[in-house]
Computed example of a mutant assay.
Amino acid sequence: MNEIVISGEFIKLDAFMKWSNMVSSGADAKFFIRNGEVFLNGEVEVRRGKKIVAGDIVKFNGEEFKVANE
């Protein structure tokens, strides 16, 4: 599992996907989220603006990413 550090209290799901290099663009993030290919804490998440906080786990393309604060 990859641990990704964010600064601040939260980050939106689409921005997190770009920040962690899961995708190369916001358009890619939007596409995969809307197609139900992104999981947040074990559940499919289709809201690209969903706020992600420390402790959350995002799964995409067979990889897991845990959110951590600075």
Rank of each mutant, 00 (worst) to 15 (best):
S24A: 09
N2Y: 15
M17Y: 11
S7K: 14
A54T: 07
F10E: 07
N21E: 14
K59E: 13
K30S: 12
D14Y: 13
G42S: 07
N69M: 12
E9I: 04
E3Y: 02
G8K: 05
N41H: 03
E3L: 02
R48W: 02
V53L: 01
I4E: 10
G42F: 05
V23G: 03
V44T: 12
A68L: 13
R48L: 12
V67S: 02
V5F: 11
V46T: 15
L13H: 09
V67G: 03
E64A: 10
D56F: 02
E64Y: 05
E9F: 06
A68Y: 00
G8N: 03
E37R: 15
M22I: 15
N41P: 05
F31H: 12
K59D: 03
L40M: 11
G26F: 08
V23A: 05
S7Y: 06
V5Q: 13
F31T: 10
V67C: 12
N61E: 03
F60L: 01
K30F: 06
K12Y: 04
E63K: 15
L40A: 09
I6V: 10
V58Y: 02
G55W: 01
L13E: 08
I6G: 02
A29P: 08
K66D: 01
V23W: 09
M22F: 13
E9V: 09
G26T: 06
I4Y: 04
V58F: 01
F60A: 04
K51F: 13
A68F: 03
G36L: 09
N69D: 13
A15R: 09
A29K: 08
A15M: 07
F31N: 11
I33H: 08
E45Y: 02
I52Y: 00
K50Q: 15
G62K: 09
K66A: 04
N69K: 14
N2E: 14
L40Y: 04
E63Q: 12
G36S: 08
F65N: 12
A29L: 07
V44M: 04
V46D: 13
E70R: 05
V38R: 04
F39Y: 12
G36H: 10
D28I: 14
A68E: 12
I33A: 07
F39P: 00
A68N: 08
K66T: 05
K66V: 04
G8Y: 08
S24F: 03
A15H: 08
G8V: 08
E45I: 08
K51L: 15
W19H: 15
N2V: 06
E70L: 06
G26P: 06
E63M: 01
N61C: 03
G49P: 00
G49C: 03
N21W: 09
I6M: 07
N21F: 14
A54Q: 10
N69Y: 09
G62W: 08
S24I: 00
M1R: 05
E63N: 13
F31C: 06
L40I: 13
V58Q: 07
D56T: 04
E45F: 04
L13Y: 08
D56A: 03
K30T: 14
N35L: 14
R47K: 15
I6R: 06
G62N: 14
K30Q: 11
A68R: 12
V5M: 09
E70W: 01
M17F: 14
M17R: 11
R47D: 11
G62A: 10
K12I: 10
K30P: 00
I57H: 06
V38Y: 01
A54K: 11
D14S: 12
A29C: 07
S7G: 09
G8H: 08
E3H: 02
A15Q: 13
N35Q: 15
